[in-house]
């Protein structure tokens, strides 16, 4: 694999994904979880642009990436709203502390 610019970006995507999934596995704080999800989505956004570029369809890739950013902001807003409610009603942001549903 040669070190051209596309591969560098690809490497970046993989790195971001790895960081994101690792974060998802170890994080318990709700705000941090939202941040980690954002990292994952950003990795995907870059991947989409990269895929557009690689297939000679950069415009499509970019427009999709932009849409994903918007759509994902909505998810982040909902997630943060839930986190606020959790903090308000339980006094903590640690998901493992309020966890009662199992079995």
């Amino acid at each position: 694999m040669t070190l051209n610019s596309l591969n560098v970006v690809l490497f970046g995507v993989i790195l971001l994904l790895a960081v994101g999934f690792y974060g998802l596995l170890i994080t318990r704080n709700l705000i941090k979880i939202v941040l980690v999800l954002q990292v994952l989505v950003k990795a995907v956004v870059i991947a989409l642009v990269l895929a557009g570029k690689q297939s000679g369809n950069l415009g499509l890739g970019q427009s999709i990436a932009a849409t994903v950013i918007v759509a994902d902001t909505v998810v982040a807003v909902v997630a943060l709203a839930l986190a606020v409610q959790v903090r308000r009603h339980t006094g903590t942001l640690d998901l493992s502390k309020i966890s009662t549903l199992r079995g």
């Binding site: 596995l25 966890s99 199992r102």
Partner: peptide
């Protein structure tokens, strides 16, 4: 089997991956 439903988010993500 019931023990597999840990209710811990991290384990749930492990399941997905």
């Amino acid at each position: 089997l019931q023990k597999t439903q840990t209710g811990v988010l991290s384990w749930n993500v492990v399941g997905i991956l």
